[in-house]
Design a protein around this nucleic acid. Structure first.
Length: 698
DNA sequence: GAGCACTGC
């Protein structure tokens, strides 16, 4: 396997970055033992606040409400910095509405990177304001919105606002747009910031507020500064305003020496906290499900062997694919005399807040998705976290009272970490984003105002893909009607293409289902202790034609059984995911109706597979003599992922796949058997000169 | 016979 393109990374069990094994101390002792840990503190930082005020030569930070209004009058963009999760920034739209900034019939928008945040903040603010939701305060997220003619403050996901620009390119409905949690640098946050910068050139009345962590503030302010004359700062159009946080003090404990195995060290640290520290629950950060399960096992073993402890130790796992009943356990308070230890993946860093955490143990690693824009290969790699992530993790200990964070790496290693996470826009497949920018009439997507430009290869690759699908013309414009319709569908381009083709192919009912099912994860659950049973039940849905048709089987069987939870339990299906797929399917059906695409059904699986090939012709692989698959595009060696129904079967000579991901090797996921003749039919322009296809017997 | 961090429209 040639891994030269993959980023270098550390594997579980190895040491933290920059560390040397020979310095490891032989005996682990108490975490509070100063020979093992050095202690620092993380608390609200008056120093950095003063520094900021000095740098920008304005606004002291107290009386921030008055200053906010002053800044709204004088500046066009305000960067609000403050500790995340302190709740102050989300109240800001409310202040503005009170003094009439939502006047002239225009709304104040406040974007969030996640659905739950948008809806829950909206509900809280509506309660504070004393209105019903959908009145003065509303929200808008996919599948759910509550807004009306009187709505003045609208909480929404950033993706939703990007989508609104397709209908209303200058966002004329809004007087002020606040982008919350911008430091997370999500894909749609970055796209939105770029669009807002463009819109501000045409709308001098628009105010933009960006809420971020302290470290990024200058970069955001510079990005939004429209005064080119930097020698005349009195004409600045962007400013920074700092908000006092209300987080508790967190002591940070660094290891004096690197740890040889961080899973073992996590378990050791938890046991030491348990025996030496006072009351308070513990949160441990690891990289993946396997590691979480292993550490939970280690702790369960050890907890049962400790007899003299004052508190009982209750380890519990937390990761996204955990069944929801199990997830709920971590939010419930434990009985007196018990200490909860939540062993979690990155899900607990931002997405989910667990109450009562006083101690945090941070492995220093996370699993992140990387994208190689040249090969198009995605990879899941374990990498050291950034300083920003480490701070965020530590901060989880300071929400209820002063807490402690144990970092399983040295202070030197901490200093060597990157400041920030790599923005998602620089490590993602940009097919959908490029399509949307094209729809907004942006001719040169390479020169678009990005806060952090994506790799040019990534943009070029996306353009190539869109061109090969027929979504953009030879001149680089959105095609009509295909491209215009594709951008409407909330789907990646390949899936949008097959959905839009499915009507004329005679299989839109089936493609609707398949596309919806591909949008959700973990349809099939396999609990560690009942794996074989789960596998056997799963076979009932297996179609020999491959995973796409097996997904179709699972969905239709679920609905034949009236979406019953008993059925799901018996057959190890994830009901939550299936219901979400049902909702997505319903939404996609509306688009087909709007475009007058025939809604039709077939029982001929060949028609369905031909249709899939019509969008996934570039994702084709051929079985080679040694039993591996070779990608048709570049000869890359790949294997069928063990989660595929085709994994156990005799390998078919030709397949198309939904995606390929590098973990231990390059794996194709969601694989369907095809006839190579269909490739020529689907994309003659793509395969015209391919000898491989013209000579399939090789 | 092997595995999958997390969002969003």
């Amino acid at each position: 396997m040639n891994n030269t393109n993959a980023p270098s990374f550390w594997r579980p069990g190895t040491t933290a970055p920059g560390s040397t094994l020979d310095r490891v101390s032989a005996n682990e002792e108490s975490p509070i033992d100063p020979s093992i840990y050095s202690v620092h503190s993380q608390t609200r930082s008056t120093q950095s606040r003063d520094e900021l005020s000095r740098q920008r030569k304005q606004l002291p930070v107290y009386k921030y409400r008055q200053h906010l209004l002053y800044a709204m009058e004088k500046f066009r963009t305000i960067i609000v910095v403050g500790e995340t999760g302190c709740g102050k920034t989300t109240q800001l739209p409310q202040y503005l509405a009170e003094v009439g900034w939502s006047g002239q019939g225009k709304m104040i928008a406040c974007t969030q990177p996640r659905r739950v945040a948008a809806t829950s903040v909206a509900l809280r603010v509506a309660e504070e304001v004393g209105c019903r939701i959908g009145g003065k305060v509303g929200y808008s997220v996919r599948f759910d919105n509550a807004e009306g003619a009187t709505t003045q403050i609208k909480y929404m996901t950033d993706g939703m606002l990007v989508r609104e620009t397709l209908m209303d390119p200058l966002l004329q409905r809004y007087s002020t747009i606040m982008v919350d949690e911008a430091h997370e640098r999500g894909l749609y946050t970055d796209v939105l910031l770029g669009l807002l910068r463009k819109i501000m050139k045409k709308r001098s009345d628009l105010r933009v507020i960006v809420s971020s962590a302290t470290l990024d503030a200058e970069a955001f302010a510079e990005f939004f500064e429209t005064n080119d004359d930097l020698t005349a700062p009195e004409n600045n159009t962007a400013t920074i305003l700092s908000v006092e946080g209300r987080m508790h003090h967190v002591d940070i404990h660094y290891r004096r020496f690197p740890v040889p195995n961080y899973m073992q060290a996590c378990a050791d640290s938890v046991m030491q906290i348990h025996s030496k520290e006072g009351a308070g629950d513990v949160l441990v950060f690891l990289t993946g499900q396997d590691e979480v399960d292993q550490v939970v096992d280690m702790l369960s073993d050890r907890a049962s062997s400790v007899s003299d402890a004052r508190l009982r130790l209750l380890p519990m796992p937390l990761y996204a694919s955990l069944p929801s009943e199990m997830q709920m356990r971590v939010f419930q308070p434990v009985a007196r005399g018990c200490r909860k230890v939540v062993i979690a993946t990155n899900i607990a860093e931002t997405s989910v807040t667990i109450p009562n955490i006083v101690f945090v143990v941070d492995s220093g690693f996370a699993k992140i998705r990387a994208y190689n824009p040249v090969s198009g290969l995605e990879a899941l790699v374990v990498t050291p976290v950034s300083k920003a992530s480490a701070k965020q993790r530590a901060g989880r200990a300071g929400r209820v009272k002063p807490g402690k964070a144990y970092r399983l790496y040295t202070l030197e290693d901490y200093k060597s970490l990157e400041d920030q996470n790599v923005p998602e826009i620089q490590r993602s497949n940009l097919g959908q984003v490029v399509l949307q920018l094209k729809a907004l009439g942006i001719q040169n997507i390479v020169r678009f105002d990005y806060l952090s430009p994506p790799p040019p290869d990534s943009l070029i690759r996306s353009m190539d893909l869109l061109h090969s699908l027929g979504a953009i013309t030879d001149e680089g414009e959105l095609s009509e009607p295909l491209g215009e319709r594709m951008v409407e569908c909330p789907l990646e381009p390949k899936l949008a293409k097959i959905l839009l083709m499915s009507g004329e192919m005679g299989c839109s009912e089936e493609i609707l289902t398949i596309v919806a099912m591909l949008q959700v994860q973990n349809i099939f659950v396999s609990p560690t202790n009942k794996r074989r049973e789960a596998d056997n039940h799963r076979r009932l849905f297996t179609a020999l034609e491959g995973d796409h048709l097996s997904l179709l089987n699972a969905y239709t069987t679920f609905h034949k059984n009236k979406q019953s939870s008993g059925f799901c339990q018996t057959y190890f299906l994830n009901r939550r995911s299936l219901l979400r797929a049902t909702e997505i399917r319903k939404q996609l059906l509306k688009f087909l109706r709007r475009f007058n695409i025939p809604i039709c059904s077939t029982s001929d699986t060949e028609i369905i597979r031909r249709c899939i090939t019509g969008g996934f012709f570039a994702n084709c692989a051929r079985l080679s003599g040694d039993g591996t698959y070779k990608s048709l595009r570049n000869g890359q060696t790949m294997a069928i992922h063990p989660s595929s129904v085709l994994y156990d079967e005799s390998p078919p000579p030709w397949v198309v796949y939904h995606e390929v991901i590098l973990t231990k090797q390059e794996y194709m996921k969601e694989v369907t058997v095809i006839d190579p003749e269909w490739l020529l039919e689907a994309a003659p322009h793509f395969y015209e000169y391919s000898r491989l296809v013209r000579n399939p017997k090789g």
